[in-house]
Amino acid sequence: MSRLLIVFLTLFLKAEPGIAIQQEVGTLPAGSPQAQGEWVARHSDQRDTGRDGRVTFKMKLFDRQDRARERALTVLSKKAPSGDKSLTRFTYPADIAGTAFLVWEHPGADAERFLYLPSLARVRRIAGSEAQESFVGSDFTYEDIGGRAFDDYTYTLVNDTADNGASYTLESRARNAGARFPRVISTIRKDTFVVTHADIYGKRGDIQKVFDATRVERVGKYWTVTSMRMQDVGQKTRTELTVEKAEYDVGLTDDAFTRRELEKVIK
């Protein structure tokens, strides 16, 4: 499953199939908790996220002393059968402004990642990251933001009574025994399939991280988590991510995701 691209797409849960989802809300199939869990997970995973998007974020990183660092970034993303593409550019603070990433996903193969450092004025290739690793130095992992690779987990519906019956509680367990975060308990809205809360467990079986969607808005046709927070309970750090501006289906072409564009962006 794609990583970076999905990061910015699946968070903005789409509304286009919302009608379909709304229709399916009442059709939670009877069956074992595992079958029901898989049904909920699949609906959450398969939401349409649009063809492409241009989103501006503000990221606040709080350390264990509660000191905050701010970063601003713009992400361009595009879905394609040949592989998703994204270009992330930091615009704040000044000393890293212009630093940019270009990611080309290749189905069934490693993604290609390129980094542009304005101080060097050169394009550097960087090695890929795992799904459960930090997303651009924040408390989010690529997986937290991009969504979990569906087949990497098994699912169990814990209950359908959360939020006074408005949400499902879903348990996801990693198939890989060595996973850094082997278990997640998520709260998923029944109407939009937005993940609004998640307790992410570590190897010791205790909660390591807590995710909260603090604001969910409809942007155009799409339901978008416009404010979210991830707390690392162990490290006592947290990251807040706020969407400043989101545009979908803006007609981005592959030309927006070239190495030349990576450099051109800040020139």
Partner: peptide, 25 residues
């Protein structure tokens, strides 16, 4: 230097190492 540190901290391992040797600010 700022960009070198930024790049180093982008990866999880780098981020953990950085937190071990320097404050985030």
């Amino acid at each position: 230097i700022a960009q070198e540190l930024f790049v180093f901290g982008l990866a999880d391992e780098g981020r953990v190492e950085l937190e071990r040797v320097t404050a985030s600010d």
